[in-house]
Design a binder for these strands. Structure first.
Length: 833
RNA sequence: GCGAAAGUGGCGGAAUUGGCAGACGCGCCAGACUUAGGAUCUGGUCCCGCAAGGGGUGGGGGUUCGAGUCCCCCCUUUCGCACCA
């Protein structure tokens, strides 16, 4: 042990020793209770950022604590290694994506190791390895067999910057999730989809198992799925054989329907144009409305725009003839692409009808009241029906039910459930991803690649241009293949999979990353699952975290797993900011973990990350703050360094020397009380609250207490074993956050095994308790004095002390004591008149 | 616009169930050691006031012996959703 704290030397030493001891390697052991700690795997972009460090430090602290609590802890790490940046880098610098990716992984693995995280590196995976993505293909084929993967031509979101298609989940405010400034454009393309809509109800239903997920995430998922009950109603169009089907959740308002609105790109629009008296004008109107439609917009507020088609439709309930209008705010892809307009009871219809002078007819009134006519705004709540024929007088709830039944009986409608979520488009017109294992044969059509032929390996010699076509199309050896059915000529699918497929099941693979018999080792999964604690950023709430749940349900249906939810508990940590905004290269405000480790060491970086804010909150990086963490670790180091010779014992091992509470001096009692209080706080916090900032504050308090006890220790008023025990408690409490330093000092005290090998000590409630209390005394709620009483003093005694206190007495002069409120352990309040 | 969360010293943040507001750290002030200090140690540090005392957790009201914490109204910030019929 050096005289001066040298984190570089200490951290290298302990990382090497932990690796030699295989300290973090866990294997299936039915005798022991397992715990699965999982953190979101990083994309190998080139370097770790502070957000990663925070995420992984949180997981590491928990994992180390659980090891000491006796759990068999699986704590793996891997690489989300397919993706666009690799391909873009390749285009820019002429380096193959694989080379770029693997060299980034080298760098970032080195960073993780430098930080000393407790990963079982035997379990490392990279999703771009054929041994891994082969099973993406396998799972895809299983879905294909079940009709859960299908191909269809559809309108898709295209990012001109990425030169590829995006999933709905990847479009934010009409722009690309990677390029916030780039508006998404629409294209009609043949695409592969995964039928997540088939699981919409189960994704909702199973949320009841996710009691330890943040409510925020569940709410976002619930909104994204967007289940709503309603009714289809068919409106016959005059002069046409067809009827127009609308979807409504408020069929009770249908007697107030004064128009039907249809999306400008609704399939029926072409038909209407063809039959129109003025087709020229109608086409122009349709184009104009379409140009301003919801899908085309990027800005937030859309002016409502519409045009009368000249056609009329008959309301099947009231028999009224009403105009059919084109409207730019009607979404083609939701419901039926057409709605009934009830301006009196829908805000949007009200606005539109006011603008275009369409009539407004009230058919719902509040349960016990009237509406002021003419309406100033739509009345959208449930109420009682008026002016609605035989339905008048019913409540909205009753009417919805009865009218839906009547529509079904009359053959002009039916009850239905609609979802906002759509199937997951996974085709990407890019190179660096999992090839979709499909062939197109002139004779046989779509033919899946036989399982035995997997993996379909991504060719390595590919010219990348980023020009909006699948690069694989240019590789004739890849494209041209024999049809597995007829042996004839076939073409391979040249699109690759969305990389969110890779991350939808990777955490299963960790439990046996080398297995070649199937995607997962079911025995290992049975032992290790579910993931007990998953930690990551909130930004994946409706991307990864919903896809991952979907995949598990598919795997359950295939018989691969026996449960429907993979993650028992989710924690979403806050972001790491610099000067109030996210760190980014373009802003030039990036704090580099490697630099920080070189300057202060990993323990300081980790400690600061945990100390600066509670983990769920955003953390603003502060250079002064990390200095404070550094100084604290130096204080701890010097404290032990100073006393180690005195405290060393050859046969050290026990954290609980036999010290009877009654034999302690008052100085000893005070020091040990603090030590046990700290341990109590950290232990309870580790179990459920995770406010590590307060745990570290407690460690600082104990360090201060130890420093203050040095005089008494030198004077022999504190015995060696007591002082030593307090230091050991400090090191234990600190070890999840600053593990290298803790081990170095632990060893200096004479221990031959790392701290992780010791069971987490139990605190003694009796020792942690105060034996004398200082109670505040209030008079009429204002603090007036303090009394010292024994912890076991009777209420009677406390009352008496309180009333006798000199300062309190002054305020009681000439007043009548009405009552005395006594809160045990907390305070006394004397109420006077 | 709708929904959720949050507003506490100069700063990051404590106060877990209604019970001493400001733990712990940063910063700042003073002092010690020192050739020196951006090292270390000691003391101080919510505001007003010499003091006694008074005020104080975004603003206003309420419940309570007692409110940062509970209730109502308002303001601000952040996040999510934004024509989903």
């Amino acid at each position: 042990m050096d005289a001066i704290y040298d984190p570089q030397r200490i951290e290298a030493k302990w990382q090497q020793r932990w690796a030699e001891m295989k300290l973090f390697e866990a294997d299936v052991d039915p005798e022991r209770k397992k715990y699965y700690v999982l953190e979101m795997l990083p994309y190998p972009s080139g370097a770790l950022h502070m957000g990663h460090v925070r995420n992984y430090t949180l997981g590491d602290a928990l994992a180390r604590y659980l090891w000491m609590k006796g759990f068999n802890v699986i704590h793996p790490m891997g690489w989300d290694a397919f993706g666009l940046p690799a391909e873009n880098a390749a285009i820019k610098h002429g380096r193959p994506p694989a080379e770029w990716t693997f060299s980034n992984i080298e760098v970032m693995r080195g960073q993780l190791k430098r930080l000393g995280f407790s990963y079982d590196w035997r379990r490392e995976i990279a999703t771009c390895a054929p041994e891994y993505y082969r099973w993406n293909q396998w799972l895809f084929l299983k879905m294909y067999e079940r009709g859960l993967a299908y191909r269809k031509k559809s309108r898709v979101n295209w990012c001109p910057e990425c030169e590829t298609v995006l999933a709905n989940e990847q479009v934010i405010n009409g722009c690309c999730w990677r390029h916030e400034e780039t508006a998404v454009v629409e294209k009609d393309l043949e695409q592969w989809f995964l039928k997540i809509t088939h699981y919409a109800d189960r994704l909702l239903e199973d949320m009841k198992h996710l009691v330890r997920w943040p409510e925020r995430v569940l709410t976002m998922q619930r909104n994204w799925i967007g289940k709503s009950h309603g009714t289809f109603v068919d409106f016959r169009i005059e002069g046409l054989d067809d009827s127009l089907r609308v979807f409504t959740t408020r069929v009770d308002t249908i007697f107030g329907c004064t128009a039907v609105f249809i999306a400008p790109d609704h399939p029926m629009v072409e038909k209407l144009i063809a039959l129109s008296k003025s087709p020229q004008k109608l086409r122009e109107d349709a184009d104009r409305v379409k140009a301003s439609s919801v899908r085309a917009r990027v800005e937030v507020n859309l002016e409502k725009l519409g045009a009368d088609t000249g056609f009329r439709a008959r309301n099947p309930f009231s028999g009224a003839l009403i105009p059919v209008w084109l409207a730019n705010f009607v979404l083609t892809e939701y419901g039926t692409g057409a709605v009934m307009s009830v301006p009196a009871h829908d805000e949007r219809d009200f606005e539109f009808s006011t603008d275009y002078n369409l009539p407004i007819k009230t058919v719902i009134v509040p349960q016990n009241g009237k509406l002021k006519e003419p309406l100033e705004e739509a009345f959208v709540e449930y109420g009682r029906l008026v002016d609605s024929g035989k339905y008048s007088g019913l409540t909205s709830e009753q009417a919805i039910e009865r009218m839906t039944v009547d529509a079904e009986a009359g053959g002009f409608g039916q009850g239905t459930v609609q979802y906002r979520i759509k199937d997951w488009g996974i085709s990407r017109q890019r190179y660096w991803g999992t090839p979709i294992p499909i062939l197109y044969c002139d004779k046989c059509g779509i033919v899946p690649v036989p399982e035995a032929d997997l993996p379909v390996v991504l060719p390595s010699e590919v010219k990348l241009t980023g020009q909006g076509k699948s690069p694989l199309e240019t590789v004739s050896e890849f494209v041209n293949a024999a049809c597995p059915r007829c042996g004839g000529k076939a073409r391979r699918e040249t699109d690759t999979m969305d990389t969110f497929v890779d991350s939808s099941w990777y955490f299963y693979r960790y439990t046996d990353p080398q297995i070649t018999l199937g995607p997962i080792n079911q025995d290992a999964v049975r032992y290790w699952f579910p993931v007990d604690q998953y930690i990551g950023g909130i930004e994946h709430a409706i991307l990864h975290l919903i896809y991952m749940r979907f995949f598990t349900k598919v795997m359950q249906d295939i018989g691969l797993v026996e449960f429907s939810e993979p993650v028992a508990r989710l924690f979403t940590q806050g972001m790491v900011l610099k000067d109030g905004s996210a760190m980014s290269k373009s802003k030039g405000n990036v704090v580099d973990p490697t630099e920080m480790c070189a300057k202060y060491g990993a323990d300081t970086v980790r400690l600061y990350m945990m100390f600066a804010a509670p983990p769920e909150k955003d953390l603003d990086w502060s250079d002064a703050g990390i200095e404070g963490a550094w100084r604290f670790l130096n204080r701890v180091y010097r404290l032990v360094e100073k006393h180690k010779v005195t405290l060393q014992v050859s046969n050290a091992g026990s954290l609980e020397p036999n010290l009877g509470i009654e034999s302690l001096s008052s100085d000893e009692r005070r020091l040990l009380r603090k030590a046990h209080q700290v341990l109590r706080h950290v232990t309870e916090d580790m179990e459920y609250r995770w406010h590590y900032n307060t745990d570290i504050a407690m460690c600082m308090e104990l360090t201060n207490e130890l420093a203050e006890s040095e005089v008494a220790f030198a004077a022999g008023k504190i015995r060696k074993e007591v002082f030593r025990l307090a230091i050991e408690f400090l090191l234990v409490a600190l070890s999840p956050f600053a593990p290298h330093l803790a081990d170095e000092l632990w060893e200096a005290l004479g221990h031959s095994e790392p701290i992780l090998k010791f069971p987490w000590p139990a605190f003694d409630p009796e020792l942690a308790a105060e034996d004398e209390l200082e109670l505040p005394v209030q008079v009429n709620g204002k603090l007036r004095g303090r009394i010292r009483v024994a912890a076991n003093a009777s209420e009677e005694q406390i009352r008496q002390f309180a009333l006798e206190d000199e300062k309190v007495k002054q305020y009681l002069n000439g007043k009548q004591v009405v009552k005395i409120v006594l809160v045990p352990q907390k305070l006394v309040n004397v109420v006077v008149k």
